[in-house]
């Protein structure tokens, strides 16, 4: 078997607050091959965003090792792009300038910058708004800019932390389609955090179902639904129904365990 592209070995993360210790992640072992679209699915507090932050290099594991493409992770880097729940764009720049920002930072050739910017402006449907300022566009469009800005860097992996969580249902469907198209064109390895079961089944090749207290992997689920998927054509399929039922059953078990835990 070839070496996995992303590897987490016995990763543990403990947050210390005053004198209490909180084990956010315990014994996380995860291997992801290149080009896979993986959803981290679970309730809030299960540590799924922490895995993303560790991979991004924003935080360091208490124990264990993390490798991306054979390299240990210790700090943020341009090989790992992040799309946040809030778009985190620069309000002093226009839509176009925001997308160009990482390329200009890496001192790319101006011809390449123009070419790439145009490509992603087209792909994300932002061409008409390229000269708008960030505060003049809607939440959905902001998230499109964030997508373009992440993808334009040609990262090895793309880390997405509930990027569509704050959007309305219609906008979310549009964004999921844009994301799927971009992913099919580029085959970037994606780690996508969500608590929405339907969203994970629509997007992922593989779902890592997580449980909380302490945060750990409950189940590793392959999704074999045929692409290109839309929510209306996968919803009636047997695999969709069964996988969703299976996930809900595991979540149900976790909920009753949680109730015991709290009381």
């Amino acid at each position: 078997m070839t070496q996995p592209f992303i590897e987490l070995n016995n990763v543990q993360k403990i947050f210390k607050q005053n004198k209490t210790e909180n084990t956010v992640l315990q014994d996380i072992n995860l291997k992801i091959p290149e080009g896979q679209f993986v959803c981290l699915l679970g309730p809030s507090g299960c540590g799924k965003s922490t895995i993303l932050n560790l991979l991004a290099g924003f935080e360091k594991p208490t124990l264990g090792d993390i490798y991306v493409d054979g390299q240990p992770i210790s700090a943020p880097g341009i090989d790992r792009a992040v799309v946040f729940q809030q778009a985190q764009l620069f309000p002093w720049l226009t839509v176009k300038e925001n997308i160009q920002f990482p390329l200009k930072q890496s001192k790319a050739e101006s011809k390449y910058i123009t070419e790439q910017t145009e490509y992603y402006l087209e792909k994300t449907g932002l061409k008409k708004f390229e000269n708008h300022r960030i505060w003049q566009i809607s939440g959905g469009m902001k998230q499109r800019v964030a997508l373009a800005r992440a993808w334009v860097m040609k990262p090895k992996i793309l880390l997405m932390d509930e990027p569509f969580g704050a959007l309305d249902a219609q906008t979310r469907i549009l964004m999921q389609e844009t994301l799927t198209q971009l992913w099919q064109d580029n085959k970037t390895t994606v780690l996508f955090v969500t608590h929405d079961i339907d969203e994970s089944l629509l997007l992922a090749d593989r779902i890592i179902l997580m449980a909380g207290h302490p945060g750990r992997i409950a189940e590793d689920i392959q999704v074999n639904l045929r692409r290109a998927r839309t929510i209306e054509n996968i919803a009636p399929q047997q695999e969709f129904i069964e996988t969703k039922k299976h996930i809900l059953e595991i979540m149900r078990k976790e909920v009753s365990r949680m109730i015991d835990y709290i009381h």
Binding site: A56, F58, P76, V82, F84, Q88, F90, P102, Q105, S106
Partner: peptide, 14 residues
């Protein structure tokens, strides 16, 4: 300054 803006900048190699 929102922490997310600084994190975003870090991932862009600043």
């Amino acid at each position: 300054v929102p922490y997310g803006l600084i994190q975003a900048a870090q991932t862009m190699g600043l």
